[in-house]
Design a protein around this nucleic acid. Structure first.
Lengths: 214, 214, 214, 214
DNA sequence: AATGAATGAGCTTTCATTCAT
DNA sequence: TATGAATGAAAGCTCATTCAT
């Protein structure tokens, strides 16, 4: 019989994940100590361990949360009837996310997750699910396009997003909008049609400030 | 006046890097201890530290070596007169590398490097050089294609390779050849021509066995 | 909100300092390992580091404690109206301390501190405070004596104590009482009066056994 | 049958000791590595070890050299017929040494030696000889003064010198000349005579520059 | 005699996790 | 439930010394 409401517990959980995310983005998984997260979250070590039994659980939970959001975004875009419009919506949605400074922390952590998956079967499971489901959704969409290998092409599309995440993590001043425009041209070319107008792409707030990460 | 030849020293250095690479691929940077590398290399800690003053130096040296090889591969392909042939040669060369089981360790380490760069300015420097030079070479090549943003498109191409490395690291059974074929179709589409025959792509030695690492 | 009382924490701290003192006296700063202190204190390394973040902190804390006690002793003696009586009280108090076998460890550590100060700005600060305050108190006292350089003479007096500490550390069988008597004669001579009776000087428990430490 | 002259060997030995002294003065015994001395002396480790079989041998050799010079200085002064003149000559000679910047390194090392003696029986032996012989010479001199404890007073005099060395090591800007004057007044008082003129005391080159030793 | 690469025990410090209160 | 002091294995790295050349 819980002494506090389920809701309260969930909120605490979210706070911890948010604190952990900030730490991981700032210092990396391995340089972040549980004490750092304890300090960032304002909890005590004992309290923290009631919610997450190990450091790796934090990593996995963050990854799961992350991928759920991405899959939602993808499904949302993929519902469109027209393949081209769907892909374009996807590019635009993704670009919007990348431009959100609040999401930058996710980005940095994502890249670390990729490497971490190679070490931890636990993280690998989450990360692969995070890729497989989007791949399936993309492939389903692309199967409507004749003359292409839908599965392989889905992977190409995934690569375009992964590469962008990576390159932007390394260089936050990267011109995301130009990348997106080029990606749309590419999509148009593949879909074998005249390029559509790039109506109203979100403008990339290119922060030209020196990006240093000590 | 050194007691041993320059050559001997260089060989030792290479042996150490090879030992470190094996360890990093197996256990990850952070789970690999210097003792692990010492054991793997058959040296003593003191000897190891004569060659590399810190663990991070090993990481950076491995990255540098890695990128030099990749750049060479890229330059080699890019010297072809025809853009399409150059890109195709590049895809093929890359695919061959990926198929080489001896290179699998590099792949796994590469993905870790990506995350590590976010934490270590030292590694970031090496990693960015490892991207910037290929990007410049690709952009130079793509500038010959009218109507595209050469720089952004170069990044797209880089993404295709990065995504492939990542996806293959996660799943060594990935059908690299299918990915390559789809990439070539994509290139053809962008270059605005009828797809060429995929004459003799290297066959991917698909190991279908599930690989688990504790 | 600490789980244990402030008092408990303070006691632990003192225990650690006492353990460290024993180790330092026995083996010297540099030959004493943190593991030695851990073993001597009965704590774990982690616990030790909760109280003192570095080995040097232990040294500095011991020095500070030491000097506070000495300053108190000096101030106590210096409050006497008569200069001669004050100096004599000081000599006597000091002699008593030196005779206390419980203080022998402090002595041995003191001498090491002197050298350590030359290397560590941290220790130097503590050590200089430990000299400057007594010097000021002595000079203040000596300013009442006409015809002498109070500051320089204060340093002479300090030297008499320092030399005694040093010589006794090297030879615990040293005849401290004889040294003290000679010092009192010297003080009498300087103060330009007939030597007073050496009423009741504490007897030095001369351990004549040769002490060897490996 | 030596391949090189005895003289050559001796010169090498001296060079090594000089290099070691510089290192010890700069970094302290324990922070100085044999590699530091190797670098400072321009030799190789192997060569260094032909002359001194262990680090401690260097320390002991430096101490022995040091004390021989001091004893000579003392004997030189003590030869005088008049006790007062002898002591005054001693003070003056000592003061000159202290003022010599070339000797500052010895001073810093001396203080470390004092602590080191407590750890190393080897060093203790040298250090005690370095005190006992001067004490004997001083006591012999002071036995001519009636009504004093020659041995204890010899120790007082030694303390005056030890304290000066210590205090100057901590603060090179210390007014050595004032200290010497006060010491002479003290001697005069003890010898029961009117203070003599302080004719030509060596001037202390008071460097008021900030004395920092990192 | 000299060289300098190599040795390897041992150092200080860290940190994920536990558990008495 | 929450607290935070405690644990202790293990990490990265150093350095006095040796010895094959």
């Amino acid at each position: 019989m819980p002494r506090v409401s389920r809701d309260y517990l969930d909120r605490r959980r979210e706070e911890i994940l948010a604190a952990a995310l900030r730490c991981f983005a700032r210092e990396g998984f391995h340089r972040t100590t549980m004490q750092d997260i304890v300090a960032e979250s304002g909890l005590s070590p004992g309290a923290l361990y009631r919610y997450f039994a190990a450091k790796e659980d934090l990593i996995a939970a963050i990854a799961a949360r992350h991928h759920a959001a991405e899959l939602a975004l993808l499904r949302d875009a993929a519902e469109r009837a027209d393949v081209r419009l769907a892909l374009r919506a996807l590019v635009r949605a993704f670009l919007e996310r990348l431009s959100d400074p609040g999401e930058q922390e996710w980005r940095r952590v994502t890249v670390q997750l990729w490497g971490e998956a190679l070490r931890s079967p636990r993280v690998m499971r989450v990360v692969r699910e995070g890729l497989d489901e989007p791949l399936a959704a993309l492939a389903k969409l692309l199967r409507r396009v004749p003359g292409i290998d839908a599965n392989a092409t889905a992977r190409l599309v995934a690569s375009l997003f992964q590469g962008l995440v990576l390159q932007q993590a390394w260089d936050p001043a990267l011109d995301v909008a130009a990348y997106a425009r080029a990606a749309e041209s590419l999509i148009d070319a593949v879909l074998g049609a005249a390029p559509a107008r790039h109506s109203a792409l979100v403008r990339q707030p290119r922060s030209r400030t020196s990006r240093q990460r000590r």
